[in-house]
Amino acid sequence: MNAADAMSPGLGSALAGMIKRDLLLAWKRPGDILNPLFFFAMVCTLFPLAVGPSVEQLEFAGPGVLWVAALLSMLLSLNSLFLSDFEDGSLEQLLVSPQPLVVLALGKTVAYWLTSGLPLVLLSPALAITFRMPADTIGVLMTTLALGTISLSLLGSIGAALTVGLHRGTALLSLLILPLAMPVLIFGARTVSLAAAGDVFSTGIYALAAYAVGALTLAPYATAAALRISNE
């Protein structure tokens, strides 16, 4: 064991340190957290304005609208996941750090979910009520959004790592991530619709949970590989 190994912290504290650093950064720039939330609320407002205030239509469209709005709002904040680190050079420090890049990428993604996915989940009931969603369906909505935003954060971190430092990154990022995100959208929105109609909806929850676990296992490796490629 050499001196560098003895001095460097373990995997757990590296992960915790990464999360803590990104949360602190997010805390200092609250606009980055709030703007996607406002966007989420506004997209949800656009639909009733465009479609009309009829209660049946809103009840019917509610799950889909909330889910599409959540997906778009995640995409909006995704571009900044590695951008500031890339610009000020701290991303290169992460690449040369003695800790495995996979763990650091996972840490960044966890912090990203805490600052962008979790607030969406917490805000969603307020918007769901305006779509006349019944109380027990709101629970299902929050569960699917929680599981779905975890998957989206992980998938998105791959796309963000691939496009970091490229011009026109945001449009490209959406083009890369949206087709991959479609299963999450399908399972999420459909499960809420089934629950609202009083049908069996457990399949969708299981599928979303399986997707989240699979993404949690595999995506950090792809993100780490993509970060190395982007910073060559």
Partner: peptide, 29 residues
């Protein structure tokens, strides 16, 4: 070119893992 090759290879592999999932989800849908 070398960077484009590697980045797009990662994307193609991620996509290949997702293709069966997309197929299953759409089937279920």
């Amino acid at each position: 070119t070398a960077k484009a090759d590697k980045a797009s290879a990662v994307l193609a592999l991620v996509g290949a893992v997702n293709v069966p999932i997309i197929h299953f989800s759409v089937e279920w849908w």
